[in-house]
């Protein structure tokens, strides 16, 4: 079947089988391999993309169902694909600055789900962040830094600047830290 969809700003028209999953079409058909496949059972959220303004698990959508849609993947989020981190979306920056990842496999889906969450709720509480990302599993981080990154990105997107406490704010050499700074409650 013939399908036409706009992916990360480019319109593609292709022949697909009805059984082709959107995630396979994006990766194998269009070469948009920034969207990984995690669990294959709709649980993990690694393959989350934005379809017509809503976060969706692309492993649970047929490519034919997305005919006529506008899709944004992690690769199109910043609007630039030259690897230049200065053009990154604030959520991408926050995940880097707060170390919201370790192996990075869940990160594209985590970031796409976060962008959707913050669009609907620009000032989430920590609890709302955790519930808002319940469809995205991370097996490395324990979620602490992901939550920090999301709260920081929310603050930045509201125009209030990123939250302090990122790993880049820490002193380069821990041994150089003075006792005074420690007692003042500097983040570890």
């Amino acid at each position: 079947m013939r399908v036409r969809m706009k992916v990360d700003g480019v319109t593609y028209e292709d022949e697909v089988q009805p059984r082709t999953l959107l995630t396979h079409h994006l990766r194998d058909g269009l070469g948009r391999v920034g969207t990984p496949i995690g669990c294959d059972t709709s649980s993990c959220g690694a393959c989350t993309v934005d379809i017509d303004g809503e976060s969706v698990k692309s492993c649970s959508v047929l490519a034919v169902q997305a005919d006529g849609s506008t899709i944004t993947t992690i690769q199109g989020l910043s609007g630039a694909e030259n690897g230049d981190s200065s053009t990154w979306h604030p959520v991408q920056k926050a995940f880097q600055e707060h170390h919201g990842l370790q192996c990075g496999y869940c990160t594209p889906g985590m970031i796409m789900a976060t962008v959707d969450l913050l669009k609907r709720n620009p000032s989430p509480s920590e609890d709302e962040v955790r519930h808002g990302l319940e469809g995205n599993l991370c097996r490395c981080t324990g979620y602490q830094n992901i939550v920090k990154a999301v709260l920081s990105a929310a603050s930045e997107l509201r125009g209030e600047g990123p939250l302090p406490g990122s790993f880049q704010d820490a002193p380069e050499n821990d041994t150089a830290q003075t006792p005074a700074a420690e007692t003042a409650g500097a983040p570890a």
Binding site: S42, G45, T48, E54, S55, V56, K57, S60, V61, A113, D116, L117, G132, E134, G135, N136
Partner: peptide, 8 residues
């Protein structure tokens, strides 16, 4: 389920 599933 979760927000992405509720979108579909």
């Amino acid at each position: 389920a979760d927000p992405a599933v509720r979108h579909r």
